[in-house]
Each structure stands twice: as structure tokens, then as C-alpha cells.
């Protein structure tokens, strides 16, 4: 089960990490997108907990509505917790015509999850994303910023997943 994001509590350690990120961005509110990306990288579930958004809004300072707009507008920013290894499967035409359905089916089968659920160990989620510019490796997935592909057989998918176990 994906943990309940409303239960997230902001620790002193995370607070100081966020402070450091804000310092790196010169407390410049125009750099909010970069700030949010950096904060998200600090959270093992790769998302911006609500408490963290409130914290950034107060410390920067910036209106919460601007932060919420950014989090919900940009695909790379997430409102809800994800797996520690979120598997982003490219769902654009180039990957679709290279049978990414098979890839998706293999992932679902091997992991026993569907969109919106996480593996029992909190390790994996599967997400459909727009073209990430790896059409020369279609069908491809992207896990924590690294592209893997082409993944045309179940065996290739299994090998890929084993790297993260």
C-alpha cells in the first residue's frame, strides 16, 4: 500500500535539508520549480509531501497556491508518494508502435501491481508518462532518471527489475 501522505511529518533533518536547498537557490522564489525538484529528490518516495509544501511556502516565502499549481501542473513533480523506484513507462507513439503494451503487461505481471498501487515492499510503482526523448530505445522505461530500453522480452524486464532488488 502507498503510505498515507497526510501522515507525513516533517523531521528536523528534512527541515535542514530544505533550508540548504533554499540556500542553494538563494531563497529566490522564482526558482521554485528547481527547489521543488530538489526537495522531491530528498524524499525516498519521490514526491512533495503537503507538509513540505507548506514549509517551503513559509520559509521562501511564496504563496502556497503557486507551489500547489506547480506541483499539480508539472509531470515531474508529484503530490502523492510513489515507489522508491518508480517505473515511468513511455506512452508516446514511438513506444506504442513498438509494443509497449507487452512491456507494460510484463511489468504488471512480474510486479503484481497496476497503476496507482505500489509493490508490497514499497519499491516499485508503474506510471505512464509522455515521451521522454528515448525513442531510439523504444519501448523504454525510466527509473530515477535513468533510461532503460529497448525492453522487448519478459526476460529483459525481469533482468532490469532484479537490479533494484
Amino acid at each position: 500500500m502507498i503510505e498515507d501522505s497526510s501522515k507525513f511529518e516533517i523531521t528536523d533533518e528534512l527541515k535542514s535539508k530544505i533550508e540548504k536547498i533554499l540556500d542553494n537557490h538563494y531563497h529566490d522564489f522564482t526558482q521554485i520549480v528547481g527547489i521543488l525538484l530538489d526537495v522531491q529528490d530528498e524524499i525516498p518516495q519521490h514526491y512533495i509531501p503537503k507538509a513540505a509544501a507548506f514549509y517551503i511556502a513559509e520559509k521562501l516565502p511564496l504563496k502556497l497556491s503557486v507551489i500547489y499549481d506547480c506541483i499539480t501542473f508539472y509531470d515531474a513533480l508529484n503530490e502523492e508518494p510513489r515507489g522508491r523506484y518508480p517505473i515511468e513507462i513511455c506512452d508516446s507513439v514511438a513506444c506504442k508502435v513498438n509494443d509497449n503494451d507487452f512491456l507494460l503487461g510484463s511489468l504488471k505481471e512480474l510486479l503484481g501491481i497496476d497503476f496507482g498501487t505500489v509493490t508490497y515492499d514499497g519499491r516499485f510503482t508503474i506510471e505512464k508518462v509522455s515521451c521522454f526523448g528515448a525513442c531510439d530505445r523504444a519501448p523504454a522505461v525510466r527509473i530515477n532518471k535513468t533510461v532503460y530500453g529497448p525492453l522487448k522480452t519478459k526476460e529483459q524486464v525481469r533482468k532490469l527489475l532484479e537490479q533494484f532488488v
Binding site: 520549480v33 528547481g34 521543488l36 506547480c70 508539472y74 509531470d75 515531474a76 513533480l77 509522455s130
Partner: peptide
């Protein structure tokens, strides 16, 4: 250097 955040 600025980063986008996933928006075509």
C-alpha cells in the same frame, strides 16, 4: 541552467 519539470 534551469530545469523543466515535465511539461511539453
Amino acid at each position: 541552467l534551469y530545469s523543466g519539470a515535465g511539461a511539453y
